[in-house]
Design a protein around this nucleic acid. Structure first.
Lengths: 179, 179
DNA sequence: GGGAATCCCACTTTTACCCACTTGATACCA
DNA sequence: TGGTATCAAGTGGGTAAAAGTGGGATTCCC
């Protein structure tokens, strides 16, 4: 180890480089792509490095995970903390006693958990979310437009195949999204 | 017991150090997530540490509990004291002879109780609220947008399952909340 | 005096934080 | 062009501290 590497480390510490592995590569603007990672016995899993890059400095603040049903299958949804806070702020403006809001609170909000990112770039997925989405060993991270999703690998394989099949059967499937 | 420990305690009282377990981790901005805790024979239950973190310094002032019906089921609602006070202030601006307001007063306000947090981070749930919501041994704390709710575990499991079912039957359920 | 609330201490379980290893990709150099 | 050094990325595990729980003792109030 030479002096320059020492300098670099202390400099990084001083500039408050986010928790987790520092990254020299530039931050990304959106979550993209997908990757397969292993959940360990403690329920921890490495956040894909590409996703950590999206979080950038916000990485130190962690992510918010909650449960969701996408295309009829259970998964975990994840968001950068500040994007989740924006969402909460908009909800706070709704009528306090609205029954629709309560549905959303009881299913979605009530299961949201803020997860810090450890020094190895991992998050701890709460036991109740692992149980909900059936996350066992192999999980798949997939990008969504606002954040990302985490699936049990077998569930994801099924979902993906079904999506392709739907597109084969209806070539205008995406045209209907009105983009 | 020596002098220094005495000093420490009285100093803490003077600086209004919050009751409850101190926490080095940063305070959260909103109540999030859910957790299962045990109500003991005395009617005490640990406030989830995540929730205490939201209260931050306000923890010393305790929380306000009252009864509510969410999605057709009885529960206890909880709020940080100052958020409850804001709510009261807004009610005070309404017409004092509004019959709807009186309903709200009679059902909601009249049953609100301020609860302190003990040195172990627990609150004492008033007997009438425990009876109302059928809280027995296992209770579930769930986050809501303005505060949190406390349910009997069996009731909660039913509510959650029903919410998921509703979402499965109507995938656009939350799209309707206009977020 | 009896019941409830509060305070305090003790115990168990869970979690956060740390360190260390493996692997694959890239860079570097002879 | 093959060997090797380097580093990011992912994974596994140990340990001290925090979180949750139970229960006794004291105080307060009707």
């Amino acid at each position: 180890m030479d002096d320059s590497s020492l300098d670099e480390k202390s400099e990084a510490r001083e500039r408050s480089i986010p928790v987790g592995r520092p990254s020299k590569r530039p931050p990304h603007t959106s979550f993209r792509g997908n990757c397969v990672h292993a959940l360990d016995d403690k329920g921890r899993v490495s956040l894909p490095s590409e996703f950590r890059r999206v979080l950038g400095d916000k990485e130190q603040r962690g992510v918010v995970l909650t449960n969701y049903v996408s295309e009829g299958s259970r998964c975990v949804e994840g968001f950068a903390l500040d994007s989740w806070e924006d969402f909460e702020a908009r909800l706070r403006e709704k009528s306090r006693f609205s029954s629709k809001l309560q549905r959303l609170e009881n299913f979605y909000l009530s299961r949201a958990s803020e997860c810090g990112i450890d020094s190895n770039g991992r998050i701890l997925v709460p036991a109740y979310l692992r149980a909900y989405a059936g996350l066992d060993k192999e999980v798949v991270f997939t990008a969504s437009i606002h954040g990302f999703r985490v699936w049990d690998k077998r569930v994801w394989d099924t979902i993906f195949a079904a999506s392709e099949q739907a597109l084969l059967e209806n070539p205008d499937l995406f045209a209907d999204v009105d983009i």
